[in-house]
């Protein structure tokens, strides 16, 4: 099963460590935005991606469940920014930029920098089955300990 960057917003402590780590990995420009509410927003690599539909040069491409961005094909038209429902694409001067799931790190067998850095476990790099298994475990444990609901 494919690995993805999965977010548990209830664990986010708004420390901005993911933003800093992402900026370090991507030449000073972060592809993650931590909102004051305490939610990291990054590209969700949608299956039905709206950005892919408006990109007419092939700069955005879907492969193995990822939306890959090719900077050299980008014209800087900003149409993908206007199409993204989550505002997860940024404009770097004259070209777009978005999360690439740290492709350079994964080539070396490392996980994306945001998931590695997050001290609160709000961002994880795992497959959906493992992720939900872990959440089920925590839900069961908190029920057994008498907590009504976590994350409030």
């Amino acid at each position: 099963m494919g690995y993805e960057v999965l977010v548990r917003p209830e664990r986010c402590i708004s420390c901005y460590a993911c933003e800093v780590a992402c900026a370090r990995e991507h030449g000073g420009l972060s592809n993650v935005w931590v909102l004051p509410q305490g939610v990291p927003i990054l590209c969700r690599h949608c299956q039905n991606a709206a950005c892919l539909e408006v990109c007419y040069t092939g700069a955005l491409e879907q492969r193995d469940g990822e939306v890959i961005f090719h900077r050299e094909k980008c014209t800087g038209c900003e149409l993908c920014l206007l199409a993204c429902p989550f505002g997860a694409i940024g404009l770097d001067g004259k070209r777009a930029y978005k999360c690439d799931l740290c492709s350079h790190r994964r080539q070396e067998g490392l996980m994306p920098a945001c998931a590695l850095t997050c001290p609160a476990g709000a961002i994880s790099y795992s497959c959906v089955a493992d992720f939900s298994h872990r959440k089920r475990g925590i839900a069961g444990l908190s029920w057994a300990m008498g907590y009504e609901r976590r994350g409030k």
């Binding site: 509410q37 939610v39 206007l82 505002g87 997860a88």
Partner: peptide, 10 residues
């Protein structure tokens, strides 16, 4: 705008 979409989804 893209920034407010970020805000709204958060």
């Amino acid at each position: 705008c893209p920034e407010c979409r970020r805000e709204e989804s958060a």
